[in-house]
């Protein structure tokens, strides 16, 4: 579905056309995205694969409303993200997007539950923070501070924080990058569970080809472009993955 059709299609979460991103660093400019068209259906589990600097993170940041393309148009359902100002983009992130990062980005001064509350405090129809932690299997660690949790546990708190607002989209940038295989699998399981139980659209960036087998589709990036699209008829469950 790497088509050019950007007409209103209610089954799509994101539709993008001719997305370009040029970073000006000093006297040289870097073209991070070179005319990317894409369509991501609602409820899809999508993996972006590619080497460093291939543009996948740039795309993730743009569809997450953290960054803007230099040119091109991007829609989330019927909202044109490329037409929003800073404040509106913030509101979009607040309402629709759950982020998960490689380095967790938990607030060290807040307990696990409070880190989740950070999001539920400002969301429209959030879960109870404890329910979200229950969903990632950390109900008994609610009152622990990040420094008192292992890396895998911290990442699962980050997942709980991302899903607690019942987001339309979960964007994960190398979610297992800092974790060992078995811990990483547990994190992927919680992502998969959120996707299955909440019907959330999930986009995962990874270097790790092993992870790609759990996705419906895989977009291969190279030099700021989508080099190849791979459709996976039979996604594998995370617990069958290892690396």
């Amino acid at each position: 579905m790497n088509g050019k059709d950007v007409a209103l299609d209610e089954s799509l979460a994101f539709r993008g056309e001719g997305l370009e991103k040029v970073y000006q660093t000093g006297e040289t400019s870097v073209r991070a995205l070179r005319g990317v068209d894409l369509a991501i259906p609602l409820g899809e589990m999508l993996v972006l694969l590619g080497p460093s600097g291939s543009g996948k993170s740039t795309l993730l940041n743009i569809i997450g409303g953290l960054d803007r393309p230099t040119s091109g148009r991007l829609f989330y359902r019927d909202t044109e993200l490329t037409a929003l100002d800073d404040r509106e983009l913030t509101r979009f992130r607040r309402a629709q997007i759950g982020f998960i990062f490689q380095f967790y980005n938990l607030i060290p001064s807040l307990t696990a539950e409070e880190n989740v509350r950070l999001v539920t405090d400002i969301a429209n129809n959030p879960m109870e923070p404890r329910d979200a932690l229950e969903l990632v299997g950390l109900a008994d660690r609610c009152d622990h501070y990040p420094a008192q949790l292992s890396g895998g546990e911290q990442q699962r708190v980050a997942v709980a924080r991302a899903i607690a607002k019942r987001p339309g989209v979960l964007l994960c940038d190398e979610p297992t990058g800092a974790l060992d295989s078995s811990t990483g699998v547990r994190v992927l399981e919680t992502l998969e569970r959120a996707h299955a139980e909440l019907g959330t659209t999930v986009v995962i960036i990874t270097h790790n080809v092993g992870i790609a087998v759990m996705a419906h589709r895989i977009l291969h990036f190279r030099d700021g472009q989508i080099a190849r699209v791979e459709t996976n008829e039979h996604p594998v469950e995370p617990r069958q993955i290892s690396w």
Binding site: F99, I122, A123
Partner: peptide, 11 residues
């Protein structure tokens, strides 16, 4: 991080 999570500049 707060900005990413959807907090406004003022918040």
């Amino acid at each position: 991080t707060l900005r990413v999570l959807g907090y406004l500049n003022s918040e």
